[in-house]
Amino acid sequence: MTMPIKFDTLEYTKRLVEAGIPPDQAETHAHALLAALSESTVAPSELVLVRSDLTARIEMLRAEMAAKINELRMEMTATIDELRTEIAAKINELRTEMTAKIGELRLAVTAKIDEARLEMTAKIDEVRTEMSAKIDELRLEMTAEINELRTEMNAKINELRVKIEGLRTEMNAKFSTVYWMLGVSFALHAVTIGMLWKILDRLT
Rank of each mutant, 00 (worst) to 15 (best):
S45R: 13
E126D: 09
F186A: 15
P23S: 10
A190N: 01
S185M: 05
I91V: 14
E64R: 15
A67H: 09
R202K: 09
H29Q: 15
R84K: 07
V48S: 08
G103T: 10
A35W: 06
G20H: 07
T77W: 10
A78C: 01
R150G: 02
L34E: 04
E59W: 06
E148P: 03
T79M: 09
I102G: 04
T204A: 15
T121F: 00
E64I: 07
N92M: 06
N154D: 13
K156M: 03
A100K: 03
T13K: 04
K163F: 12
L34V: 05
R15D: 03
L149M: 12
L200E: 08
V109G: 04
R117C: 02
G20L: 02
A88P: 03
A116L: 08
I80T: 04
P22T: 09
N154L: 13
D81I: 09
I91Y: 05
M98A: 14
R161D: 11
I199N: 11
A155T: 07
T99N: 03
V50N: 01
M3V: 15
P23Q: 10
N172W: 01
E93R: 08
T13Y: 00
R73D: 02
I69K: 12
E64C: 14
E75Q: 10
L61K: 06
L203I: 11
A26Q: 02
E39K: 14
E82F: 05
K198R: 12
T192Q: 09
V48T: 10
E137M: 06
P4W: 02
A133M: 07
A111N: 04
E86M: 01
R139K: 09
A19Q: 00
T55F: 07
T13V: 05
L200P: 03
L47A: 15
Q25M: 15
G183P: 01
E71P: 00
K156L: 09
I69C: 08
W180I: 15
E115N: 07
K68S: 12
R15M: 06
W180L: 15
L138T: 05
Y12R: 07
E18T: 08
D125S: 00
L54Y: 00
I146P: 02
M74P: 01
V162Y: 11
A66S: 11
A187K: 00
E137A: 08
Y12S: 04
D136R: 02
D24W: 08
L34C: 12
T2A: 11
E159L: 04
R168D: 10
T204W: 13
Y12T: 05
